[in-house]
Design a protein around this nucleic acid. Structure first.
Length: 275
DNA sequence: ATGGTCGCCGAGCGA
């Protein structure tokens, strides 16, 4: 007798945790429940040495970390080995404090599943507020650097997943109260256009592709928005054509917001790929 | 009506 095992695909998630240390317990609880194979984290808010590797390794995850003191910082957790681990986007400028590095907002790795490989990037795009101003200009410049890199990645004709906190509300249907965001950097026409320019290269918003109806959010601020469901969808999964071919499912783990005393202002978004 | 709350770290900044 031969047993058949259903293939479930590779579950890849993104989550802006708003400090990995402050969110350690809820993050571990979510990992045990959701069982993702790969997790892209943003806003870890610590240097590499401060990343709590041991508790994640105890759950079977390898950790690739690109940290920064106090702000930003990204990481990838993976049950499979990671290769070609690359921090930073090309074209970065030194930080104002004189350090030679760029903001820690991008980290990429290649991961092999049972049916093939996937290139995964964790992305923490600049917020860009207040608008207008130098921070908004920095946001647009950073997104253009991301676009140029995303374009290069398409040449490999491999499944690519560019996931994270883009700090962009793509359309009116992605905000409970779109009018409230008119003067915000996340909802400026230039911000939406920057996201569309990346999509126009050949990337697809995985969540939108399976949920065209809108009304699904990934972020609620700490000023009472959760209680009123005054959310926005700003955490996105962009798939290359070869990635989209393998898309099986996509979801938002909204319940994570109410599952602990001190939640992140973002919730996890995930997809399942035939890889 | 332009507040409110987090997390960094131990004052304001960033979101």
């Amino acid at each position: 007798m031969r047993l058949r095992h259903e293939f479930h695909g590779l579950k890849i998630a993104t989550w802006n945790v708003n400090s990995v240390k402050a969110r350690l317990e809820p993050a571990l609880a979510w990992l045990k429940e959701a069982k993702p194979d790969v997790v892209c984290l943003q806003e870890i808010k610590t240097v590499d040495e401060g990343f709590p590797r041991e508790p994640f390794e105890a759950l079977g995850y390898n950790c690739a970390v690109h940290g920064q003191k106090s702000y930003n910082g990204v990481a990838i957790l993976s049950r499979h080995p990671m290769e070609d681990v690359t921090p930073r986007l090309p074209g970065g400028a030194p930080l104002p404090d004189g350090s030679s590095d760029d903001h820690a907002r991008y980290l990429e790795a290649v991961i092999a599943g049972k049916k093939g490989v996937v290139r995964v990037a964790t992305i923490y795009a600049p917020n860009g507020n207040p608008w207008p101003g130098p921070k908004f200009d920095f946001k647009l410049a950073w997104l253009e650097r991301l676009r140029l890199h995303a374009k290069k990645l398409l040449k490999n004709e491999e499944p690519v997943v560019l996931m994270g906190d883009y700090n962009i509300i793509p359309q009116d249907i992605d905000a409970a109260r779109p009018k409230a965001w008119i003067k915000d950097a996340l909802f400026q026409p230039e911000s939406k256009a920057a996201l569309r320019r990346i999509e126009n290269l050949g990337y697809t918003d995985a969540f939108r592709s399976l949920h065209p109806e809108g009304g699904h959010y990934t972020f609620w601020d700490y000023f009472g928005s959760w209680e009123r469901n005054n959310g926005i969808r700003i955490d996105h999964i962009l798939l290359s054509p070869q990635g989209l071919d393998r898309l099986k499912k996509v979801g938002i783990d909204k319940e994570v917001r109410g599952a602990c005393e001190k939640p992140s202002d973002h919730v996890p978004v995930w997809c399942e790929l035939n890889i």
